[in-house]
Design a protein around this nucleic acid. Structure first.
Length: 839
DNA sequence: GGACCTCAAGTTTTT
DNA sequence: CTTGAGGTCC
């Protein structure tokens, strides 16, 4: 701080009278926010010209720096609010930033910067220029569910076997292309993207574009000449065509379309470039290629791009994030100023050291040395358990003890202060079960989303058709929900009619009725539905307004529109009631029905927060609102991914076992880079903790229903030992003992030198050898005894029991006290031998 | 249109 | 093992 006071004084002394623009502005306005910054932060805030890369380690106050930078831009008169573009990845981050800028600036500045997620900013842009990519301004944003259904339709039409080629996987590849800003035309076809079609194609259909396969006449009469290979690229093109026809786009399109537009219309791009004088980006390490291109295009003129990120916290590689973007920043933006924020204000030195030790195992880092002025605090605690239930039980007890303040050496914590961060969501169940049992209040974050529930999706589909009558996907969803006697036959007729006339399904339905294609019950039902939809649509139209880029206060005021007859909330209620959707659940006798009605009520109530149905739909599409504003203190259970950006005084990190964390799948699919991403995840996990971090693992865990021995995660041994408190050497010892015995046979996946030759593994063995108190458990691996049904057996954890079923290797045992379990025969021994067991 | 059966898969998921 | 999706059979 003092150093900078001096520099200020120096600057003031040498500055010519009148000074720079900055200094004059500084003189004009007090800037108290600068005082709270450390030197690095201050540099990042005050370097306003040219590109800046802020490498901000975990807990180094990057949000503070970002918000102060915005305040500084405004305060120094460098930019008016709407000349600043600030993008984040999550709504939550955007909201937080808005709030903080707001409180920094007070009411002194009119208007806010363009501040939002990549997607929300792109939507705004795209609504203005939709026609340039063949969409209308009121296009629908499809969620993954719709996308998949749409894609399946296309696959089916092309006769692609969805068993051999799972739609999810193919769609995943297309999505990856979009993330790389590759439109269908830009995709370079590869052999593995060639798919078999089971359909027979006519001469015409084969066309010249497609490679004919099996060019033999099978069915001369129909003119079909053979099967063909359909490339994924072709499916991608068709998918995009369908989206355009539906006046819809998916998440990836928001970015892709804008990049396309900017690339094709330099004049327009220039307009935006002039507009956004200063650009700020949060979590830059998570940007994908499309986002990167969008940023680079927008920032090319002024080059005042400030990116904030931490390469060590890049954990979304599997979703297309390119760590390369941040690693390459200085090349992309020549002359960039790189500022490292290395002072951590969050965690104790032990926690920081443990995290640094782990992340040091990664290559290809920009490298930062985090340090802190915090007092030393507790060591990172490590504890091994026999199995995952023990782990959950122990953590539950620890939480209770800490919440009551009875944990020796530790202060009392609120449940709010504590979080359990897991690698995979299925790990959560053990904790939920246990906490339910002992009555510990918890909150799961990241569970099934409210808007993704069946009833919400149905209701939303109604709204969508009302707002956007061309939304065929939504129309298909609701046409027979509730049941109107409109089956596949009637739907097919409508589809045929729609396609023949090149109109939407809703219009197709109208035509089908006029032409007498529909009969009886279906006819009446569809006619009524279409009439109702028309009525609702006209009611809704009175409420529609699309915000554009020029949406300054003044413009908004000047927009006049007819006052709506009824509010959108009332309209929503009417839609759900008149359509019979509410009645459908009221008449439903299943136990879920009341809950679903409750959710519908909730949904309608939530509408109140939006200006109209449109705004609501936009929000549904772009937000995953997981924030619950429950007030009771609760322990948080969430995934490591979900925890990024959060911090807790007390953090538990369970399940640090090879195969689970690092995840076997990550390593199988992405090799070393997969492992490194897992390691970054470990780093993120540890650095969430402010005061106390407890890592644990279980020696036994059921994997797909089979009990398996687990090895402790390699990350455990990457933590410098002097910062780790190994809590129960006995448990660790016995755990490793079985692991080791079991390891020889249990797992061919990791039988490679990899694990057993790693320094970590060797150290673990040494440590175990040095602890004579830990008697190694030897299970007889060579002669796994054969058990007969009805035989009494003994298991180390479950105790005595009776074999109910056996196929030699696997047993189902009814234990006297532990219930029925299925496990490998090698883990139990005849009850008679139990006394020989060394424990 | 619903009940039942078989089969395959089985992480993470800011928008 | 458990779940979900798809197919088949009444």
């Amino acid at each position: 701080m003092s150093r900078f006071d001096e520099e200020d004084a120096f600057e003031a002394a040498v500055a010519p009278a009148g000074g720079s623009l900055t200094q004059r502005a500084m003189a004009a306005r007090p800037m108290p926010y600068l005082d709270g910054l450390n030197p690095a932060q201050r540099e990042a805030v005050e370097t306003l010209d040219g590109p800046v890369l802020m490498l901000a380690g975990a807990g180094t106050g990057k949000t503070k720096a970002l918000t102060c930078r915005i305040a500084h831009l405004l305060n120094t008169g460098r930019a008016r609010p709407n000349e600043i573009l600030a993008v984040t990845f999550t709504n939550k981050a955007a909201r937080e930033m808005k709030e903080r800028v707001g409180s920094l600036m007070g009411t002194s500045v009119a208007g806010m910067p363009w501040l939002g997620t990549f997607h929300s900013v792109c939507v705004k842009q795209l609504r203005r220029h939709a026609e340039l990519v063949g969409l209308k301004s009121n296009f629908t944003i499809l969620d993954t569910d719709d996308v998949l259904r749409l894609f399946k339709q296309i696959m089916k039409a092309e006769g692609i076997d969805d068993k051999r080629h799972p739609p999810r996987v193919l769609m995943g590849r297309i999505d990856a292309w979009k993330n790389q800003a590759l439109s269908p035309a830009k995709v370079i076809g590869r052999e593995e993207d060639e798919l078999w079609s089971d359909r027979l194609y006519s001469q015409d259909e084969m066309g010249t574009e497609h490679q004919a396969y099996e060019f033999k006449r099978r069915n001369p009469e129909s003119g079909a000449i053979g099967r063909r290979i359909v490339t994924l690229k072709e499916l991608y093109r068709q998918y995009q065509d369908r989206l355009r026809a539906l006046n819809a786009c998916d998440f990836g399109d928001l970015l892709l379309h804008m990049v396309t537009i900017f690339q094709k219309h330099p004049d327009l791009l220039e307009q935006y470039q002039r507009w956004y004088k200063y650009i700020l980006v949060d979590e830059y390490q998570d940007t994908n290629v499309a986002q990167y291109l969008w940023l680079r295009l927008l920032g090319a003129a002024h080059k005042n791009v400030c990116c904030v990120g931490d390469d060590d916290q890049s954990i979304y590689g599997w979703r297309g994030a390119e760590v390369g973007n941040i690693l390459r920043f200085e090349k992309d933006f020549p002359g960039a100023k790189v500022v490292r924020l290395e002072q951590n204000y969050r965690s104790t030195p032990h926690i920081l050291a443990a995290a640094s030790g782990v992340i040091a195992g990664n290559t290809n880092r920009l490298g930062k040395d985090l340090w802190t002025a915090e007092p030393e605090g507790e060591l990172v605690r490590l504890i091994g358990h026999w199995d995952y239930e023990d782990e959950a039980r122990w953590i539950g007890e620890e939480i209770e003890a800490m919440a009551s303040g009875s944990r020796a050496k530790l202060r009392q914590f609120s449940l709010e202060d504590m979080a359990i961060l897991v690698r995979a969501s299925h790990q959560m169940r053990a904790f939920e079960d246990r906490f339910l049992k002992i009555g510990l209040a918890y909150r799961v974050i990241g569970g099934p989303k409210f808007y993704e529930r069946l009833e919400c999706r149905d209701a939303i589909a109604y709204f969508r058709v009302v707002i956007q009558p061309e939304d065929d996907l939504a129309f298909e969803r609701i046409i027979n929900t509730p049941k109107r006697g409109v089956g596949p036959k009637a739907l097919l007729d409508i589809q045929t009619m729609a396609r023949a006339n090149g109109v939407s399904l809703k219009e197709g339905a109208r035509l089908a009725i006029q032409e007498g294609l529909l009969k009886g019950k279906a006819k009446g039902a569809v006619a009524e539905l279409v009439t109702q939809l028309d009525t609702w649509s006209s009611l809704a139209e009175q409420q529609i307004r699309y915000p554009g880029i020029e949406d300054d206060e003044a413009v908004v005021e000047s927009v006049d529109y007819v006052p709506a007859e009824i509010s959108h909330v009332e309209l929503a209620e009417r839609i759900l009631d008149e359509s019979g959707y509410t009645a459908m659940w009221q008449n439903d006798k299943t136990p879920e029905a009341p809950g679903r009605l409750e959710n519908l009520k909730e949904l309608v109530k939530g509408l109140d927060e939006h200006d109209n149905l449109n705004g609501f739909l936009e929000n549904v599409a772009l937000s995953v609102d997981n924030d619950s504003n429950e007030f009771d203190p609760k322990v948080t259970i969430m995934t490591l991914h979900g925890a990024k950006g959060l911090e807790f005084p007390v953090v538990f990190l369970p399940g640090w076992e090879e195969g689970l964390f690092p995840s076997q799948r990550s390593m199988d699919e992405s090799g070393l880079s997969g492992l490194e991403e897992e390691r970054r995840l470990a780093y993120v996990g540890i650095t969430r903790a402010e005061e106390l971090c407890t890592i644990s693992f279980a020696s036994n865990r059921p994997v797909f229903g089979q009990w398996q021995s687990q090895l402790p995660s390699r990350f455990i041994d990457e933590m410098p030992h002097e910062h780790v408190d190994v809590m129960t050497p006995q448990a660790v010892g016995s755990g490793f003992g079985t692991s080791r015995a079991g390891a020889a046979s249990f797992d061919d996946r990791v039988s490679d030198a990899d694990v057993y030759n790693s320094p970590g593994w060797k150290r673990l063995q040494n440590r175990q050898n040095r602890a004579p108190s830990a008697k190694p458990i030897t299970l007889d691996m060579q002669a796994a005894p054969v058990f007969t049904v009805g035989e009494r057996v003994f298991h180390v954890k479950f105790g005595y029991g009776e074999v109910m079923q056996s196929d030699g290797a696997n047993l189902t045992v009814e234990f006297d006290h532990a219930g029925s379990k299925t496990l490998k025969a090698q883990y139990v021994k005849p009850a008679a031998q139990a006394d020989d067991a060394p424990f």
